[in-house]
Design a binder for these strands. Structure first.
Lengths: 216, 216, 216, 216
DNA sequence: AATGAATGAGGGTTCATTCAT
DNA sequence: AATGAATGAACCCTCATTCAT
């Protein structure tokens, strides 16, 4: 019996996460409004009623999904940036490539599409997202660029603009993967890592002073 | 009678467009599923029933909205690319800047968010979008880059990757404007033209051969 | 102009009847509730609005349809019964055969199906129908049978029962023609006059005293 | 739990039948189009939504109502006809009287009115009805009459006509009961069994050879 | 008189949520 | 804790009716 209970308890403790995973998948796939609460429950392997034992409403479920994926998503990046001691170009390379691996290649990447589709319907989420994601991510990348400029590695470009030039394609790629990308034949889909490498090289081409040595 | 009818007919002929405009706004704002048919009607200044005199269902209305904004959206760009006789760098500058003005600054820019949120629910739309927008737009930009490479103006980069590096930030910016951007204080919003100018400069920095002269 | 007006006026004066005809057809075909007012108008060759110039509502149109077809439908039969001087058997033969020709073979035959389907939704119609149709028709046939009994031509059967035995099959045949009959291949449909002749012969076989001479 | 579930399951299992019963009543009373789905639900003692847990649409509910009442409705009659060993006249008496009791006196009798009012709107129902009801019922009665003719009990009448002469009044009576009959004072309504007895006697009077002995 | 665009109440159907078991 | 039957508010869509032309 203790054994059964152990399984049961493990099962029970896994429930919220299983529900969040199912919800993320479906909300990203079909949108929040077009997803039925029962679908989420079924995909998580429980009944409709059980969903409501863990989340008081479909909307709270959405918020939980978002909260989970936005918290401490950027903490890791910040630490990497602190410790790194190579050139700024190399650091950017490192940061964005790692970020791609950790976030964009995972199911969590859907969160970006989800944010895009739902912020305007749930305004409280907007501020949360700005504070937890945009702000810190912008800061990390911005600091590296600023450091590159200060060190004479980069030209004196407009830093906020440069951040967008670097980051937006990656985010967009990730959104694409969950919208059009999901409708096209898989071989059509862009090779992520390959693209990132060249993209950073291109933008660095504009960032680097002409007299600076090219990065490896 | 002719006069009376004229007024009436003008009204009637304007209805479809008024409805499409209202629908675009609302579908972009709240998503297709979360928008009530009656809301669209009211924003267009008519009653619920009137909507159905012009479009047989909410779904057909969505398709009409999309069809209208995707048709011949890229034709203009193609012509500009044909006629242009300056350097490829200048042509890219010209193309993207003009595209920004014509599309992204207009209400039509919302169509990108709409596509992202709805393609997976309406698969027929995906193919249509690929054929009418992605394919031709990719070709135009791709041809310019290829020409630059052939002429010795650009380095021998991977063309499809380069297209994405150039274009995705603009699209993403535009999506952003209709999602997070609509939730933040207006002064936070990025300056479009300024960004575009620097973005192109940055990427061109990576595209141009180091020994080539910088564009004006 | 006078000529145009003449046509117009003729046209106009024919309108109510054209509308009634169209309404009868459609109400019989699809039922009152399932028939749209506009359908009636279109079948009558006018626009939706015009229908309402002649009848204030769909329900009033139904009542007009019914009233038209029930009034004086039986008057003719009554007179024939008065004048006839042959045997009662011959008279019944005559009456029912004629009734079949005049009523059941005409589009007006649909009125029976219409009554069946709609009386319960429009109770005021019931009394009207009883008074105008059932009562007089019953009386006419009943009188003939009663006379036959009084004269010693028929056995002393229950008269109301006998009326039903004679008349119900004809009515049912007629209802059938507008329901199942309309769904089957036309060659399947029963030959009306042939049936009537044998039906009356059969029932007369039971009515006539065994020692009476058979009718021609 | 088993007990609780038992009650619950019994409830759930009874629902479809309760809904079918309510639907039959209302569709017969008001017609299919004029009956609201919610009315059916309320009469069955459940809420609007519950109806849709058991039947996917109002139209499917109609089909279920019809299917239930037409299946195996005539099987019993066929068996009785097989086993019977009296005279054909007695057999007809028996068959029709029994049919009256079993079908026409029950709420199921409404199905005839329902068929009449709805076949033309749901063509698939027509074929079904012909195959399941008309065809077999016609055969049973037809065989008895034919046997009577073969045995020299009946005259050589036209069999299909004779079938109609026997059966149509009963069907019509039954239709009447759910249309006009429901609008008249109850005491006006014809006495079914009494009528059937005399009706059969009358028609048999025409069927039987004059030299044959009258049935008891 | 005739039209047909417009209206909005009404009915079919869905689905978030509740609650008895 | 888990289920799933039941509810009813809400939404899509239809159509009887109106009315400006």
């Amino acid at each position: 019996m203790s054994d059964d209970n152990a399984i049961r308890r493990r099962r029970k403790e896994a429930r919220p996460q299983e529900l969040l995973d199912a919800a993320l998948e479906l909300f990203v796939e079909k949108g929040f409004a077009a997803t039925r609460a029962e679908e989420v429950a079924l995909r998580a392997g429980v009944s409709k009623g059980t969903l409501y034992l863990y989340y008081p409403s479909k909307e709270e479920l959405l918020k939980a999904v978002i909260a989970q994926h936005l918290s401490s998503q950027v903490a890791a990046g910040a630490q990497a940036a602190e410790r790194f001691d190579g050139s700024c170009a190399e650091l950017l390379n490192e940061l964005l490539a790692r970020w791609w691996e950790n976030v964009l290649e995972s199911p969590a990447s859907g969160i970006f599409k989800l944010m895009i589709t739902e912020v305007r319907n749930f305004p409280e989420i907007a501020e949360y997202y700005r504070r937890e994601v945009i702000e810190p991510a912008t800061q990390i990348v911005g600091q590296v660029i600023q450091r590159g400029i200060d060190r004479g590695e980069f030209r004196a470009v407009d830093v906020p603009f440069a951040i967008h030039s670097l980051v937006l394609p990656l985010v967009m790629l990730c959104v694409h993967r969950h919208s059009m990308g999901a409708c096209l034949p898989p071989d059509t889909v862009l090779d992520g890592p390959g693209f990132i490498r060249q993209h950073i090289a291109l933008v660095l081409g504009g960032l680097l002073r002409r007299d600076a040595p090219l990065p490896a």
